[in-house]
Each structure stands twice: as structure tokens, then as C-alpha cells.
Simulated scan of single mutants.
Amino acid sequence: MKKITVIPTWSFCDEAGNQLDLQLLRLLGAVYRRGKLTRAAEDVGISYRHAWNLLRQGGEFFGVPLVELQRGRGAHLSLLGEKLLWAEQRAIARLGPQLESLGSELNLAIQREQQGALSILRLHASHGFAVELLPKYLEALPLDLQYCSPHESLAALNRGGCDVAGFHLPRGKVGEQVRSTYQGLLKPRKHRVIGFIARTQGLIVAAGNPLGIETITSLDASGVRFVNRQASSGTRSLLDCLLKEAGVSSKQIRGFETEEYTHSAVAAYVAAGMADAGFGVEAAAQKFGLDFIPLAIEDYLLVCHQRSLKEARFQAFLDILRGAPFQEAVRKLPGYSPSRCGDIIDVDTLL
């Protein structure tokens, strides 16, 4: 099956209309990972000569070198080279969910034109690494995946805008505060909860943790720069509860008003040196080579209408969740594990 993937594209153009080869950004990323131009060129699939020419053209375009080459010490990105690389990484992390949602809409439109009426499963949920896996494992069942906050997802379910909604419920005392916010959105007589995954959330800090950040109370230190998640996200709700429990005022946290919209975007922000700490999942920290301080475990749950469970498409969905291939893929994500995956839970039991 042919599918459309929507990705952001950069364009470097000066007043004279001269443009840079976009392969340059891939090369910068490879230099950052490998530390040698020869190995970076191999990663990108180009010759050493071509790699050298790309760096020369980039340096001439911007007026400063993008990579510093030293005999016996390999290759390292210059300050501007790092800024370009991290700007790209942040853009991909920030725009990823919206572009995935757009791609889902386009692919479903194409399938309808090719095959006519489809049995589609509409899932509204917040962006996460485990949710990203679902389209791959639900190939036989067309999935309309739209990313939005937990409360927006539940509201969509109640008005008929989706078939399945995702929401988060932290374990322990902090979970009690979050649980109360779902009252009225989860309806015991109409809804059924589907177990999905558990994930660890905590502080994402620079590699080596140079500031010695240890707990949530470290965030109110004057020198710590923080990057937050948006106010509507489940991760932000968890953070707010942890701060309240620890007696830390958000007004004392430098950068608390700076918001990103995905775990990866938070991690990219820290990796770029624009913040010393963020809050998110361990998988995002590892993706960008950062350290992680675990603070809480939360269950990521799904909910649907009780009547829907009798439908063939829901049985197919549950079979995938309960299957070994999907659960093994979840286990490979740092800080993730299947948790009653595919089990049906009464809302009263949950609340």
C-alpha cells in the first residue's frame, strides 16, 4: 500500500537566488554523530570530496565555517553549524504531530478514492512514542490518527468526533489530582476504558547533568533554565501536580512560560543548549543523547463507547494491542511497557 508522508523542507536562498543543497543538513547531523568527515560522508551516502564541497559551499554562503576540521582531532560543528542542526531538529520535533495528522487525512482520502467505503478507526490522542507505533501495526485497519490533548480527545469522543480517545492517569497520589479532572468526561454507563501502556516521566537534562539537577525542587534554582510543555497537555498536568506536591511555585522557575508541544521538541530544546532542563518521557531524552531523572509513572489509557466493542473493527484493534508483536515494540521504547494492553476496564473501577 502506497502512503504519503509529509515532512518539513528547508530552503536556504540569498538575495541573488543562490540556493544551498539540502543534503548539507544531513551531513551536519552525521558530523555531529560521527565526529569524522569520512564517516559522516559514508552515513549520508556521498563521497568525501562531495562532503568537503558541501561544507565549503555552506561556509561561503553564510560567511563562516559550519564545521571545524583539525588534523588528528576529527570534525566538529562550529557554533553556527550546531544552531542550524538543532533548529532543524526542533522544527521536525515541533511540527511532527501536525504533519502526521495531515498525512493520515491524505492517506485515508486516497484509500477512499481507490477502494470506496472503508471501515475506519478514528483515534484522537496526545502525541507519544507508543501511539506513533499504531499505524504500522494496524495496516489492515485504516486509522485516522489525530493528535490533541487528553481533554480535547475525550470531548471529541463524547460529541461523536472520534471512536477512541487517549488520556493519561499518573500513578500514586499525584494521580488523584489528575483523576478528578476527568469527571464528567468519562461516563461509566456509556464508556469502557482500554488498557494501553505505562511510561516513565521525569526531568530531561543535558548529557552528564552538569548542573547536578536531582529532583523537581532543583528547578527553582536561579541558574536553571527550563522549557515546559503546553498548558493543555497531560504531561503539563502531571508536572503541575508534582510541583504542587513538592511545594514549588512555578513563578520561581526560570522559563516556565516557554512551551513546546511534544516530548521530542522539549528534548531538542535542551539538546540545543537553549534550556538546562525540561519535563517529558525517557524515550525523548535518549533520542537526543540526554540524561533522564525519573519522577513518576503514568498509565496511558484509551476509551471508547461500550457499544463499539461489538464491532469487527474494534475486535481487530484489540487483537493488535494484545498481540506479541506490538507489545514487544512497546518494550523496546526506553521507559515504556505494555500495561493491561487491550484489556477492557470499567470506568467506575478506574475512577
Rank of each mutant, 00 (worst) to 15 (best):
I4Q: 02
V6T: 01
P8C: 08
T9R: 14
F12C: 09
D21G: 04
D21L: 02
Q23P: 00
L24S: 09
A40S: 13
V44L: 12
I46E: 03
N53P: 00
L54V: 06
R56N: 07
Q57F: 07
G59N: 08
G63A: 11
P65R: 13
Q70D: 12
G72P: 02
H76D: 09
L80F: 13
L85T: 08
E88I: 12
Q89E: 15
A91Q: 05
A91H: 03
P97A: 01
S104G: 09
N107F: 06
A109C: 05
G116N: 10
A117D: 15
L123V: 13
H127Q: 08
V131Y: 03
V131M: 04
E132I: 04
K136D: 09
Y137W: 12
A140P: 03
L141W: 07
L141F: 11
P142H: 08
Y147L: 00
H151R: 10
E152F: 00
S153R: 00
G160Q: 05
Q177C: 07
R179K: 14
Q183F: 12
P188C: 12
K190G: 03
H191S: 06
R192M: 06
R192T: 12
G195K: 03
I197Y: 12
A198H: 09
T200H: 12
Q201E: 14
N209W: 06
A221T: 03
F226M: 00
R229M: 01
S233A: 04
T235F: 02
R236E: 10
L239T: 01
C241L: 09
C241M: 08
E245F: 10
A246S: 15
S249R: 15
S250I: 04
S250T: 12
K251C: 05
G255W: 03
G255P: 02
E257M: 12
E257S: 15
Y261R: 05
Y261I: 02
Y261C: 01
T262W: 00
H263F: 01
H263T: 06
A272F: 07
A275C: 08
D276I: 01
F279D: 00
A283G: 14
A284P: 04
Q286F: 08
Q286T: 10
K287E: 14
G289E: 14
D291C: 10
I293V: 15
P294E: 15
L295P: 03
E298C: 06
E298M: 05
L302I: 13
R307V: 06
L309N: 07
L309F: 10
E311A: 14
A324N: 11
F326E: 02
Q327M: 15
Q327K: 14
A329S: 13
L333M: 12
S339W: 15
R340S: 09
R340D: 11
I345P: 02
D346G: 07
D348P: 03
D348G: 04
